[in-house]
């Protein structure tokens, strides 16, 4: 019976969370650390419920998600344009590869001082950092995807007389899709990390800010339960996007087509 229940991924995960909370409560009850720095799980949950019910957590989460959606959309548009350019000319493709190898290893947060000077301290600087973090890894995997399309696919398409647009829609994109999806996944992961990091560096004190800024604020006020509550929200969002959204896209596309990466 127990074995049967544990065969479900979700059941196992719930079990892990229960064990984690139990260990946490145990350490808390041993009084090893000051309560200011190590609050009980109950205090954290109460803080989280309070912040969700008074709407403040919802506002902060929406702000962060709003920024990341802008960052992702702009970045994917830029990536698409760059991919088209790379496929038009060999020189441009070479240039793109050089750019990637030079800029991709540069952490987004390292550009923050420059971004502040160029774009000021508003959303623009943060979006700039996100674009930098997303475009290069995404471009790299999408270009690799197009390069790895077997020649025979193209020849088949040409043989049956597909138009250029149909070639792209029905052959290039589906054939490169595993890499495109991987690029989007990487892009999301990089954007998410750089956004939270950038938000923690500066922000206005009273106006709306996102979850990263919330952690910074709570740290200044020594509000440890509040900080952990925000971390939990960050984890939940990460799990929802990476596990649920991306795995369902994978299930309905790549896996269904039998092109598991």
């Amino acid at each position: 019976m127990i074995k049967h229940i544990l065969s479900y991924k979700i059941a196992r995960r719930i079990l892990y969370v229960i064990i984690f909370v139990a260990v946490w409560q145990g350490i808390y009850m041993m009084n090893l650390f000051s309560e200011i720095l190590f609050p009980s799980p109950a205090t954290v949950v109460n803080t989280l419920i309070k912040e969700i019910s008074d709407g403040s957590m919802i506002i902060k989460t929406s702000y962060t998600l709003y920024l990341i959606i802008i960052g992702l959309l702009v970045s994917f548009f830029i990536t698409a344009v760059l991919v088209v350019l790379a496929n038009v000319s060999v020189v441009l493709k070479d240039l793109m590869r050089t750019l990637i190898s030079v800029l991709d290893p540069l952490p987004g947060i390292a550009l923050l001082p420059i971004a502040i000077l160029w774009f000021g301290i508003g959303k623009a600087a943060i979006v700039f950092i996100m674009i930098h973090s997303i475009v290069w890894p995404t471009l790299l995997s999408v270009m690799a995807g197009f390069d790895s399309i077997p020649k025979i696919y193209r020849e088949v398409g040409q043989n049956i007389g597909l138009s250029k647009i149909k070639m792209i829609r029905d052959i290039y994109v589906p054939a490169a899709f595993p890499n495109i999806l991987m690029g989007i996944k990487n892009g999301w992961a990089r954007a998410w990390r750089s956004l939270i990091a950038a938000e923690m560096v500066f922000g206005t004190t009273g106006a709306v800010g996102g979850l990263g800024w919330d952690i910074y604020l709570k740290r200044s006020y020594l509000d440890m339960p509040g900080m952990i509550a925000t971390l939990i929200v960050l984890m939940i969002i990460g799990i929802l996007i990476e596990d649920l959204l991306f795995s369902s896209i994978e299930k309905h596309t790549v896996k269904k087509w039998g092109m598991v990466i």
């Binding site: 000077l117 000021g120 301290i121 500066f202 004190t205 009273g206 106006a207």
Partner: peptide
């Protein structure tokens, strides 16, 4: 008035 304030390290604030 908090919304008029921005937290930044002194050297960053100086260059901004």
């Amino acid at each position: 008035f908090d919304s008029n304030m921005v937290a930044m390290a002194n050297p960053d604030a100086y260059s901004s």
